[in-house]
Design a protein around this nucleic acid. Structure first.
Length: 554
DNA sequence: GCCGTTTTCGGCCCGACTGTTTTCAGTCG
């Protein structure tokens, strides 16, 4: 079955093959189309059905034609012809760090080396000694890269929730020990992408050497790959690559824009600058040799006639045009969140744990809190809070913070039918399926406040899973939970939910340890989906109370 | 191969870093 991801993958394959064939501009054209297709929130087939393939950035006559062929037949003849011309291993050599199209082509054409394995054999046999352009160091570098290529899974991206604590630790280390004034993680991490391929960290410091020394000595860092005057690249113990760049304060905003990306967003910005007789690079916005902006992001965007664009929207999906017309609608921010609709305590939690949760919620200024009194842990095992904890729950609300009881309903356990006895709770969280996909009920049998859209529910992706539940959620008036993990919507799913008119529930992580990534990552996903405060249920001032009240009334 | 509120042809981001170099090519992001 055709998929957007597969189409993008084929185009990237075409780009690699064209690269080693020595084509100049076509490879980038195919990659650009692949990136556009990846960032679509809709199936290619639907776009094609409306006849709008050409409206996808980077898709022109030739690529539209190939997309139609792919949708009709599942393959692209052009790709297959290219694959016959270039041995598969030659393109694979591009995956080895440090080997690019020029080198791979030279190995193939001049030396008859047709892949990484043959390259290693040639190295061992000394066939590359004395070849022009390959000195001793270069050969050692290639060998090391080949070894790493064989052992490590290449191109593996890390889920952002796993990268989060690592990034926090590095930022903390640089702030506390390197005398760095400003430290910011840029790149896809800052844009809130679901996965990150590496970390780009920008610091301002009078003493780059000290910053690099501190960074290199952090326990997370495994080996330094390169160090220059302004940049150091290292590999962490978990394999993640991290770039640290030292920039001067007058350039910090420009560097932040530049290294936050996305690539396509930067291309649009630069082209806009060109139209206005300006130039943008990581040092600033320049008119001739004069720097007219660079200290802050706001300044950089303003110099280009644009309103500031939140990092989560910088994906070349129309945000630049929108920002040229005026300020963008405000995305939901941490300060908008008034409470949490779906908080788990551990099954063993006593009244004291509930008190701690309540204090944290008060510290954050929350107005309401929905605590699961009967539900499922992450494995889908049912649990209920103890009687003393329930007792405490009934009396713990204060004038400023109301605490509600929440019951989780697992539809799979009931084979999609209404549970025979739903315990009385203030509101309900519906989990379509913990274990097996079930179709949504034709009509809501109760009034859930939150729908947890499991990835495995009724489709291969979260988006598909959600779509089958959209009608149910709308009829029930339920919000859909966004955030990290298989049991929540990612930003693409959340965008689809928004576009279908559903509101979002954004977990705050209030019931989790302080360093938990759940809250910050969920908020990024919601923002990435374009959610404004009015589209987030727990940004509403009033609690979404909808059932029989068992709280502090009487 | 794509793209155009000065272009339907002639451009296509650009700077850091490395290695092999005597002034530059390749890779990367």
């Amino acid at each position: 079955m055709p998929s957007n991801a597969e189409a993008a993958e084929i185009f990237r394959g075409i780009a690699d093959l064209l690269d080693v064939m020595g084509e100049r501009f076509k490879p980038e054209a195919y990659r650009r189309a692949a990136r556009s297709i990846d960032s679509l929130t809709e199936d290619l087939a639907s776009v094609a059905a409306r006849g709008e393939l050409r409206s996808i950035p980077g898709v022109g006559d030739a690529i539209e034609e190939k997309l139609r062929e792919y949708l009709a037949s599942g393959g692209i003849g052009y790709f297959e012809r290219l694959q016959k011309e270039v041995p598969a291993g030659v393109a694979e050599m591009l995956q080895v760090p440090g080997l690019g199209p020029k080198t791979a082509r030279r190995f193939w054409v001049e030396l008859g080396i047709e892949g990484p394995a043959e390259l290693l054999i040639a190295l061992d046999a000394g066939r590359l000694v004395g070849v022009k352009g390959f000195g001793e160091r270069k050969l050692a570098q290639i060998r090391a890269a080949l070894d790493a290529h064989r052992t490590a899974a290449p191109g593996a991206r890390l889920p952002i929730e796993e990268a989060y604590p690592i990034a926090q630790a590095i930022v903390r280390g640089l702030r506390e020990r390197a005398g760095a004034e400003r430290v910011e993680v840029a790149g896809s991490f800052r844009r809130g992408r679901e996965t990150v391929g590496d970390l780009d960290i920008l610091v301002t410091s009078d003493d780059p050497v000290r910053a690099f020394d501190v960074f290199s000595s952090l326990p997370e860092v495994s080996e330094v790959l390169l160090r220059g005057g302004t940049k150091e690249t290292a590999r962490l113990r978990n394999g993640l690559q991290v770039d640290v760049r030292v920039v001067e304060p007058a350039s910090f905003g420009a560097a932040l824009v530049y290294f936050t990306g996305s690539k396509d967003h930067n291309v649009q910005i630069r082209s806009l600058a060109k139209d206005r007789g300006l130039r943008v690079n990581e040092y600033g916005v320049l008119r001739g040799e004069e720097r007219v902006a660079g200290r802050s992001e706001e300044e950089v965007y303003a110099a280009l006639g644009l309103a500031w664009i939140p990092p989560e929207l910088r994906e070349a999906r129309g945000e630049v045009e929108a920002a040229s017309r005026g300020p963008l609608p405000g995305l939901v921010a941490e300060s908008d969140l008034r409470g949490d609709l779906h908080v788990h305590l551990s099954p063993e939690a006593g009244p004291a744990a509930l008190d701690r949760l309540v204090r944290t919620a008060q510290d954050r200024g929350y107005s309401y809190l929905g605590v699961v009194v009967q539900g499922m842990d992450t494995d889908g095992t049912p649990y209920a809070l103890s009687e003393p904890t329930l007792e405490r729950l009934r009396t713990v609300s204060t004038a400023s913070l109301r605490v509600f009881s929440v019951h989780e309903v697992d539809l799979a356990a009931e084979r999609g039918a209404p549970p025979p006895e739903v315990p009385v709770a203030d509101w309900y969280v519906v989990r379509p399926s913990v274990r097996a996909p079930v179709p949504p009920p034709s009509a809501p049998f109760l009034r859930p406040v939150v729908l947890v859209a499991h990835r495995g529910t009724g489709g291969s992706s979260k988006g598909e899973a959600l779509l089958s539940w959209t009608a149910f959620a709308r009829a029930a008036g339920a919000s859909v939970e966004v955030g990290p993990g298989a049991e929540r919507l990612d930003s693409t799913g959340a965008r689809q939910a928004r576009e279908a008119g559903l509101s979002l529930a954004v977990p705050t992580g209030v019931g989790e340890p302080a360093e938990s990534p759940t809250g910050p990552v969920a908020l990024r996903f919601a923002r990435r989906a374009g959610a404004r405060p009015a589209e987030v249920r727990n940004a509403e001032r009033r609690p979404p109370f909808s059932g029989a009240w068992t709280g502090d009334r009487g």
